[in-house]
Nucleic acid binder design. Structure first.
Length: 910
RNA sequence: ACCCAAGUGGCGAAAUCAUGGUAUACGCGUUGGACUCAAAAUCCAAUGACUUUCUAUGUCAUGCGGGUUCGAAUCCCGCCUUGGGUACCA
């Protein structure tokens, strides 16, 4: 009997939906919270790369459920964002309707592959019901300061009270405010002055910072939209421009973000990535005198190399560069790297050091100074070759392979690096040439966006002073603006005619009414995407709550995320922000967990071939790729991505299909190569822009969702990127059919009711043990191998006994839920297989009384030998020495040593 | 430029961490066979490379070059290539 996946899968899809099988309620069972990283609902819909994480987490969720946990496995949409905004500008559609359509598309596609998401908990960041709380949280961040003494964020009113009492003398706050004031002064200050000071303490504050401004496009651009200093769209120049923007004092949490790793289970590489992003380090800054100019401060990363400094480069933005530049005003070479006529004095030797100005170095540090140590720094060395009068001093010498000692370094000579560093630091500090500081690479996160499609920031401005909208008036809803493309440096919301706050009536009114007495302008910037995505995992626990973002009861039950699965591209930004946000909410007492995620795994990407054809620039002529360098043609070519479905046999193109697909090129000319038209193929990330997307529906339509699910898992380890090959899916198709056929005899469903043999039980328990272990390690690909081996053996020994097969189908159900549900039903079970338990393995069936030893000669395998598991090493030794095979190989050579590693190997050295 | 990861047959990969111990499990593909008038489907067998007439307890293979070890795909050092991130793509 043929397995009719279309009918069967459709049947169970409906059953699950109708009976709300995936709906989760809090109960007395132990909880397990699985989370997929927030998807962005793009217009092109889901592709098989997205599915990878969903399938993996679904297998894990179904498995945990079958192990007795109450599993929360929710989904929602990070639906604010740039692509929707741009698509809306292009097409004239409203971003609201685009988002609605895209979310619907995603839901259908995800349901199709049988993911057990609880859709009743769906949320969407662009929904006012959700962003009401994002806005609320922003106001709370605004109304908080960081107490360094207790290491937590607190209400700003506590700080104000303290200022009233003691000024800022006694408080130990995380602040950018450097001056001191007492309570008298504070009380005397006016409203404006007080708020200006408070801005240095608030966790959300306004500050001018740089943006990428593109004048021609009339907008701020993301780095992603820029290529080589020009806009990707149109290729227009970009200028850095300072704008007043909201910042979040994330740096206050640097130490806790580092410390928190103790409680997160994730790969070391993920930890390293985040640690490097935070970039905490102890550094020494030194003061250097520039003759006739003044002092500069510079960071010296390796103070033990101080005697190797032979030049200094200043960034063009350095205040001293600007002074120096005045002298060079009339010279042409001020723009790139050039040598000035100024000299610095070496802080210890007082030797003259030449000063350069330029951008050769990636000067990212605040000091904007680069200390050139060409003897031991690669880039400095390259730079010194450019200006060949730079002196190169080697200050290190290899003592042996590991240790380096200082040379040409005055009093440091002869010390190894570590010792030399200690000594020089001590001297620098004593002589007050240097200061020890803790430095962080991370800076406070910029929170303002000049876009339309984001959460409005709930702030209005009274004489330029930011005041939060009263929280009982939240949310302030994003106004509908038909044409929000500003083409000016004003933010999109500036175009809204109704975007002013009436303090008397407590509502949003027309901007015409602004009188700056009781009607004030509202902030026109919107929030960044990371706002909504920094706390969504909390909302899933209590998505329908209208009174608060999360109730105590629900939080007590679900606590935090047990397993977080998502792409490694979010390893830094999103994870840092979400962890910060969570810690903030905890500090203020609204939640209890210090860390939001207990365990994080990163899935790899799926790569696929893309097809690129050669087109003659500006003409409807296509040239087969192999003719690219053919001298007869004097065309200039442009490369064009075409849909991968137009290829037949690797890089051959079906021209008729091509013309059909692109009606624009119906009358185009094709220059062939040996009668065929070839393209270039490239293996790269699956993406809409590269037209190499494979949609899950195309696969599940042809093979069924079970086959699709299992094949995606079978491609390779979840954490690695892997390429898609549509041919190999056949192996899984055959395997699913084998499962089906083992439950059938002569075309009818049949299982044998006899008691299994010990050998059969042993096979089953071995499988249970392996699957148990491998699922916990997320090795889903090798689980499938084990299922295959198991089924192959059952077929070989002709076992179709109920007691074995029933357990097997439970084990495979998380991987292939549809066929399992059908077989479970045919086995006579009334309830869904989702409600069954996967048994634990019984170790009594696993015992083996023989142990296989590998016998090696000088580390090379010769043969294997079985020994009784009870044998002592001594007994094995005697046995081996008298083994004729060994005597034969040893022949007349003398045995030097015998190494026996219990339960593993025997190595004979001769 | 910096940070993080990956590199194993014709191909996807296993063994890689906790714990160094039979390299290529499982699958695809290919080849041969069975069934069939034939094809598809299915089933069975072989399949890293090399060498020799046969045999084998033979030789060589885990991106490249070294090292540690009785023993390295696995650990250490130095490279090469590819992918991801670098703060307004998500």
């Amino acid at each position: 009997m043929e397995y009719n996946f279309r009918e069967i899968e459709e049947k169970w899809r409906k059953y699950w939906k109708k009976n709300n099988i995936f709906r989760i309620k809090e109960n007395k069972k132990k909880k397990y919270y699985i989370l997929n990283m927030f998807p962005y609902p793009s217009g092109s819909g889901l592709h098989i790369g997205h599915c990878l994480g969903y399938i993996a987490s679904d297998i894990y969720a179904r498995y945990k459920r079958a192990k007795g946990y109450n599993v929360l496995n929710p989904i929602g949409f990070d639906s604010f964002g740039l692509p929707t905004e741009q698509y809306a500008i292009q097409t004239g559609k409203s971003p609201h309707s685009i988002t609605y359509e895209n979310e619907k598309k995603y839901k259908n596609q995800i349901e199709d592959i049988g993911i057990s998401f609880d859709w009743s908990r769906k949320l969407s960041t662009s929904n006012p019901i959700y962003y009401r709380w994002t806005q609320w949280m922003f106001i709370q961040i605004f109304n908080s300061w960081y107490d360094k003494k207790e290491n937590k964020a607190k209400d700003i009113n506590i700080l104000i009270k303290e200022f009233n009492k003691n000024g800022n003398y006694k408080i130990n706050a995380y602040t950018s405010y450097k001056r001191k004031f007492n309570s008298k002064k504070w009380i005397y200050y006016n409203f404006l002055k007080k708020e200006t000071i408070l801005q240095h303490y608030r966790l959300a504050y306004l500050k001018r910072s740089l943006v990428n401004w593109c004048n021609e496009l009339g907008t701020v651009l993301a780095n992603d939209e820029i290529n080589n200093g020009k806009s990707k769209r149109g290729g227009y120049p970009i200028n850095k421009k300072k704008m007043l923007q909201w910042h979040i004092r994330t740096t206050a949490y640097s130490n806790r973000l580092i410390k928190g790793f103790d409680d997160i289970k994730c790969s070391n590489s993920l930890k390293k990535l985040q640690l490097n992003w935070i970039g905490k380090s102890k550094v020494i800054s030194i003061l250097i005198n520039i003759i006739n100019i003044g002092k500069i401060e510079a960071i010296i990363l390796y103070p033990e190399l101080i005697f190797g400094i032979t030049f200094i480069t200043l960034s063009k933005n350095h205040s001293i560069s600007k002074k120096i530049n005045n002298f060079y005003k009339n010279q042409d070479n001020c723009t790139s790297n050039f040598l000035t006529k100024y000299y610095a004095l070496h802080p210890i030797t007082n030797k003259k050091i030449p000063i350069f100005i330029g951008d050769f170095f990636f000067i990212k540090n605040k000091r904007k100074v680069y200390l050139g140590i060409p003897g031991h720094d690669k880039i400095s060395k390259i730079f010194s070759y450019k200006f060949n009068n730079i002196e190169i001093i080697n200050v290190l010498k290899h003592k042996n392979e590991k240790d380096e000692i200082c040379i040409n370094s005055n009093f440091l000579n002869g010390f190894n690096r570590i010792e030399a560093r200690k000594r020089i630091i001590k001297i620098l500090l004593e002589k007050k040439i240097g200061k020890s500081e803790t430095s962080y690479k991370m800076h406070d996160a910029i929170f303002s966006r000049q876009r339309y499609w984001g959460e409005p920031i709930p702030i209005y401005f009274k004489q330029g002073i930011p005041i939060p909208i009263p929280i009982n008036k939240l949310p302030i809803v994003l106004p509908i603006i038909k044409n929000f493309y500003t083409k000016s440096e004003k933010s999109a919301l500036y175009k809204s005619k109704k975007w002013a706050w009436n303090e008397k009536k407590l509502k949003i009114v027309s901007t015409n009414l602004i009188n700056n007495k009781y009607i004030f302008p509202i902030e026109t910037n919107t929030m960044p995407c990371w706002a909504g995505s920094s706390w969504y995992f909390l909302r899933y626990m209590d998505v329908k709550n209208n009174n608060f973002f999360l109730s105590k009861e629900k939080e007590d039950y679900w606590k935090n995320v047990d397993l977080y699965i998502g792409g490694s591209e979010h390893a830094t930004g999103h994870l840092i922000y979400a962890r910060f946000w969570n810690k903030f909410l905890k500090d203020r007492g609204w939640i209890k967990s210090e860390e939001p995620f207990k365990k994080i795994i990163n899935q790899g990407m799926i790569l696929h071939h893309s097809a690129i054809v050669l087109k003659v620039t500006g003409k409807k002529i296509f040239v087969s790729y192999g003719l690219k360098n053919y001298k007869k043609y004097k065309f200039s070519f442009q490369e064009m991505y075409i849909d991968i479905s137009l290829t037949i046999e690797k890089n051959k193109i079906d021209i008729n299909k091509f013309k059909e697909f692109y009606p624009l090129f119906n009358d185009a000319t094709f220059l062939l190569e040996k009668g065929f038209f070839f393209c270039k193929r490239k293996l790269e990330k699956m993406s809409k822009s590269k037209y190499n997307i494979i949609k899950p529906y195309d696969i599940s339509k042809k093979y069924g969702s079970d086959v699709f699910r299992m094949y995606e898992m079978f491609l390779g380890p979840i954490t690695q990127s892997k390429s898609w090959d549509g041919y190999k899916i056949n192996g899984i198709k055959i395997f699913i059919r084998k499962i089906w056929s083992i439950f059938h005899e002569n075309g009818k469903f049949y299982v044998n009711e006899d008691k299994p043999t010990i050998e059969e039980f042993r096979l089953l328990n071995n499988l249970i043990k392996k699957i148990d272990e491998k699922i916990e390690l997320y090795h889903f690909n090798t689980c499938i191998s084990d299922f295959m081996i198991f089924i192959k053996k059952l077929i070989k020994i002709k076992c179709n006994k109920r007691k074995i097969l029933e357990q097997f189908i439970k084990l495979i159900a998380p991987f292939a839920p549809y066929i399992s549900e059908e077989i479970w039903n045919k086995l006579g079970k009334k309830k869904s297989i989702m409600y069954t338990f996967i048994p634990n393995f019984k170790s009594k069936f696993l015992l083996d009384n023989k142990i296989k030893y590998i016998v090696m000669f000088n580390g090379k395998l010769k043969f294997t030998e079985n020994f009784d598991s009870k044998f002592t090493i001594e007994k094995i030794k005697n046995n081996i020495l008298n083994n004729p095979k060994i005597k034969n190989i040893l022949n007349k050579k003398k045995l030097k040593k015998l190494i026996i590693i219990p339960k593993k190997i025997i190595n004979i050295l001769y």
